[in-house]
């Protein structure tokens, strides 16, 4: 009995974003189908992973997470090189030292850290601040300038600080991360505000502020599914690729931080699965850029994605 394959006729697609400069560019987005349904449309670029590098030694990472970076955690340039050795396609530099509670590093100091990392590796860079909105604006102004022309992805821009960060992206040729708290309408609104400043829509990535497995993953999961459906049906203000800061959430969870025990099994296996399954679930919902922390998670994620990228036409 012949089954007539049900194919959706999507009218539009996700914007394609280019991060970095030739010959080391990474492209994301461009999808004209729901994730991995190759029988229905194109998925020209696979989901990519950036490993996280900090400009200071992270104070609260569990030992299973610091072990692979032993000896380089105090040196962002060496740390970034190590990530590239582990196979990272991009580096995500988190300027945690700029947080007033940490070292309260100045924007100038942050720009120096960013330059050091940029000089140490060839892969494209994502650079984010400490999450303090006002400070991030000041920091990204200087960082954007220091990295002029490298076509980085910088953020995170919120409705409160997007003007300065957008301006820095426009002047210096970067892409921007637009963050909004778990609400598709707020995400759309911020994209409109940023494009109204004349930054091209294909230079924006949506950050829906994801939660980890067990900690609200379903909210961001559904927002991603809805924005992908929006993108495929022609909503230009939802057609941006989605960036998922999975590492920071997964490694905050009790399941990743609790040591080996009989009820929950071995910590390392459990923690890595927590990070990987959070990421691969978001890949099913439509995430394009994944910021992870553990090199084993990177490896497992990429293995899975390679399998999912194989053609599966009927």
């Amino acid at each position: 009995m012949a089954v007539t394959i049900a194919k959706e006729r999507w009218t539009s697609k996700v914007n394609e974003m280019v991060i970095g400069v030739e010959p080391n560019v990474v492209k994301v987005g461009g999808d004209s189908t729901l994730p991995f349904l190759h029988f229905e449309g194109e998925m020209p670029n696979k989901p990519v992973v950036a490993l996280e590098v900090w400009d200071m030694e992270p104070p609260d990472w569990p030992a299973v997470l610091t072990a692979p970076f032993a000896g380089v955690l105090g040196d962002p340039a060496a740390w970034a090189k190590k990530c590239v050795e582990y196979g990272a396609g991009l580096i995500c530099l988190r300027l945690a030292a700029t947080h007033p509670d940490n070292k309260d590093a100045t924007p100038e100091e942050a720009a120096q850290s960013a330059l050091k990392v940029a000089g140490a590796v060839d892969v494209p860079l994502i650079v984010i601040g400490s999450g303090v909105e006002e400070k991030d604006a000041a920091v990204m102004e200087k960082v954007g300038e220091a990295l002029n022309g490298r076509k980085c992805l910088i953020g995170c821009a919120t409705v409160n600080n997007y003007k300065t960060i957008t301006a820095s992206c426009m002047v210096n040729g970067h892409n921007i991360i637009a963050s909004s708290p778990l609400d598709i309408n707020l995400a759309k609104q911020l994209n409109i505000l940023i494009t109204e400043m004349n930054l091209a829509a294909d230079r924006i990535a949506i950050d829906p502020l994801v939660g980890a497995l067990g900690y609200g993953i379903e909210y961001a999961y559904s927002i991603m599914e809805r924005s992908r459906l929006g993108a495929l049906t022609g909503d230009k203000m939802l057609a941006m690729p989605v960036i998922c800061f999975v590492g920071q959430e997964a490694w905050k969870s009790k399941e990743a931080k609790t040591e080996d025990n009989e009820e929950w099994g071995a910590q390392e296996r459990r923690a890595i699965l927590w990070e990987v399954v959070t990421a691969t679930s978001f890949a099913q919902a439509g995430g394009s850029i994944f910021v992870l922390r553990h090199p084993e998670s990177l490896k497992q994620f990429n293995t899975h994605i390679a399998e999912m990228m194989k053609p599966n036409n009927y």
Partner: peptide, 13 residues
């Protein structure tokens, strides 16, 4: 359990 806990949690979510 290290393999099953993530799956049960994902299903719940």
């Amino acid at each position: 359990p290290a393999d099953v806990l993530p799956l049960i949690t994902l299903r719940l979510n």
